[in-house]
Design a protein around this nucleic acid. Structure first.
Length: 516
RNA sequence: GGCAGCGUAGCUCAGUUGGUGAGAGCGCCGGAUUCAUAACCCGGAGGUCGGCAGUUCAAAUCUGCCCGCUGCUACCA
């Protein structure tokens, strides 16, 4: 019997600057889901990468005196190295400048054209180079420039200029009914619910055709048959998910991984993924992704990160300072997945000390060190007939693991970790209640039973924590004597055999302080 | 302006269809304990549930208005 497949993607990053916490957050959350699915018996394909075309890159490259391709080659490096540092287990790091991607996008265009959805027209309006978007006159705001003259700015406060260009259009207006049917027939297509409501309202309000080519620059994928035009960056970018679905790298539209099970994207690009993208796919006669999840933004002490405020932090530096697994844990535990979240050095220290040092780490250390000191580090035999405390522990773990899996399958990462911490509390309660350190002087057999039960509880906790903290959990499972081929969820109920010699315990999550 | 959501202990949040004394985690204080990373375990303090007015025998939970915040969307200057 073959494994069920699961194909998930992150949005691809635009490498016109250094990666920020938002990139790290999206990559980490997606990686947690990818690892969860693998441990849960799925064959997973996990795609991430960079979106490298468009006017902004073209201009930045010119400013740097470089060819665009040389420029992006250089700019992409920090994104890749950040992913590697954070332990992101992607199967492919796609770049929209990859040859197979270019071929695929052109094939996609031709399918949409063959379906009669592309036509040549003229586009004019207020265009913001920085936003790469046109705005209605009504959306613009007025401001004074340095010389005191009145200038028009986009809603984002970027300069706009009146622009007229020939453009290919996509007949998006013809897709309103089909998109509404999609939304209504598949209410979990857009998550969380609040995003679904917004997008449904947007589509219900009527759709206008979409300009999907540009003639004002040439750093992009040429339109087949009309090479004066390059394709709209979003059409180019969205298609990366199709390119990445082809494991062979041929660039065919029939990639074996398509359709994607899950697109993880930021809340700011939900519209592109839930309105434009499905319309493009329907036009091309391709099937649709199952779910698009729009996560929230990370705020630095409750404020948006901006260069102006000077509160932009480098995720690579954060990971180095606190440790990759601490950062991963904090972001998944403290931020409700789908909502905006806030972080600070203090919050990271407090949260991870409480959960990891005092919680999981201490549980492992206190039980393992008793086994090492009292039983020569040999895994003890479990209780023959479970007592009342064992029954309660078992029940707590049954409920806890059920809550964990329910939350993970519903993409509620923070709730899964809440359930996991409930299991930690139950295990610590069991340990304190039975006081094996006292039993060591009165009833060594019973002490061994208590230790065995505690170690098994710890093993279960660590097994479930693996998607979140791959490196630390591997160390802990080593210490707990769990064989490398027994770490998937299928082995969740299989205890380590009595008699196994355990390595000497060593703390995995030391307490940290801000000064340290 | 319209639509949607939110505002509950210092912090992050739970609170089904209104009904026994308003909860959890973290933080804080106290106790107990010593296996453990001054950790764990037990206990405690802290809230006029944004404000006002209603409906009801009874509202954090329903209605109206107001204040504040967020998102989507429209439009006037």
């Amino acid at each position: 019997m073959s494994k069920p497949r699961f194909y998930l993607t992150t949005a691809i990053a635009y490498p016109n600057g250094r990666p920020h916490m938002g990139h790290a957050y999206e990559a980490i959350a997606s990686d947690v889901i990818a690892r969860f699915k693998r441990l849960d018996g799925h064959e997973v394909r996990f795609l991430t990468g960079t979106d490298e075309h468009g006017l902004k890159i073209d201009q930045a490259a010119r400013a740097a005196g470089m060819a665009p391709k040389d420029y992006v080659d250089q700019m992409v490096a920090p994104f890749r190295s950040l992913d590697e540092q954070l332990g992101i287990s992607f199967d492919r790091f796609i770049r929209t400048t990859d040859a197979d991607h270019k071929a695929l996008v052109q094939a996609l265009w031709q399918r949409m054209a063959a379906n009669g959805d592309l036509y040549l027209g003229r586009y004019e309006g207020w265009y913001s180079v920085r936003d790469e978007a046109y705005y209605d006159a009504a959306e613009l705001i007025e401001a004074q420039d340095a010389a005191g003259a009145t200038v028009k700015l986009s809603p984002q406060g970027t300069p706009v200029e009146w622009t007229v260009e020939e453009s290919w259009f996509f007949r998006l207006s013809a897709y309103q009914e089909r998109l509404l049917a999609l939304f209504d027939g598949q209410p979990d297509f857009i998550q969380p619910q609040s995003r679904f409501n917004e997008m449904r309202a947007f589509v219900a309000g009527g759709l206008t055709d979409l300009s999907v080519s540009r003639t004002s620059f040439d750093w992009g994928i040429p339109v087949p048959g009309d090479e004066r035009h390059v394709m709209y960056v979003w059409l180019d970018a969205l298609a990366n998910y199709l390119t990445g679905a082809d494991g062979s790298g041929r660039g065919g539209l029939d990639g074996e991984w398509w359709p994607a099970d899950l697109h993880i994207v930021g809340k700011d690009v939900v519209r592109f993924h839930t309105v434009y993208w499905p319309a493009f796919l329907i036009s091309a006669g391709l099937s649709l992704p199952k779910t698009v999840f729009g996560h929230g933004f990370l705020l630095n002490r409750g404020e948006k990160m901006s260069k102006t405020l000077g509160n932009v932090v480098d995720p690579a530096e954060m990971a180095t300072r606190f440790g990759v697994d601490r950062l991963r844990w904090f972001l998944c535990r403290e931020v409700a997945f789908g909502d905006d979240g806030s972080y600070s050095d203090e919050a990271i220290v407090e949260r991870t000390n409480a959960d990891l040092a005092n919680g999981i780490g201490n549980l492992a250390q206190r039980s393992l060190s008793m086994v090492a000191k009292n039983l020569g580090g040999v895994m003890p035999t479990r209780a023959g007939a479970p007592g009342e405390t064992e029954v309660r522990l078992k029940e707590a773990f049954l409920a806890g693991s059920e809550a964990y899996f329910g939350a993970m399958n519903g993409l509620a990462l923070h709730k899964a970790l809440d359930a996991l911490m409930g299991m930690v509390a139950a295990a610590n309660g069991y340990f304190a209640e039975n006081a094996p350190w006292a039993l060591a002087k009165t009833d060594v057999t019973r002490m061994a039973e208590v230790l065995a039960a505690t170690l098994d509880a710890t093993r279960r906790i660590v097994i479930l924590a693996q998607p979140f903290m791959p490196a630390s959990t591997a160390q802990l499972l080593d210490q707990l004597g769990v064989a490398e081929d027994a770490r998937e969820f299928s082995g969740f109920n299989t205890a380590v055999d009595a008699g196994v010699q355990l390595p000497p315990p060593a703390g995995v999550f030391p307490r940290i302080t801000l000064e340290g």
